[in-house]
Amino acid sequence: MKIFFICVLFILAVLIAAYLYRVLQGPTIFDRLLGLNGISTKAIILLVLMGTVFERVDMFIDISTGYALLNLVGALAVAKYLEQKGLP
């Protein structure tokens, strides 16, 4: 079971690399923002999975909650800023 979770963890890391490609290559800045949002959702899942692997889910869940809240505030701030500023 542990081996399975570690495999899933590696697959998730590879998927994050796919989103990272979009962040680095995105034609517009909104592509980058969207890729960042996808990465953060995957990071939340990754943290819970890591907690399952290390058998410390109670601690890692708190970290992922904090991460989700920070992501909400950050993404909204950047989107609002870009909305007022327009395309660079």
Binding site: T28, F30, A68, L82, E83
Partner: peptide, 25 residues
């Protein structure tokens, strides 16, 4: 955490898409 994700993700997606539409894409 799941409920948090379900509430916040539509908000973020909507904000991004609205910013993209308003900036003329």
């Amino acid at each position: 955490v799941l409920a948090l994700l379900y509430i916040q993700n539509p908000v973020i997606t909507h904000a991004t898409i609205r910013a993209a539409l308003r900036s003329g894409l």
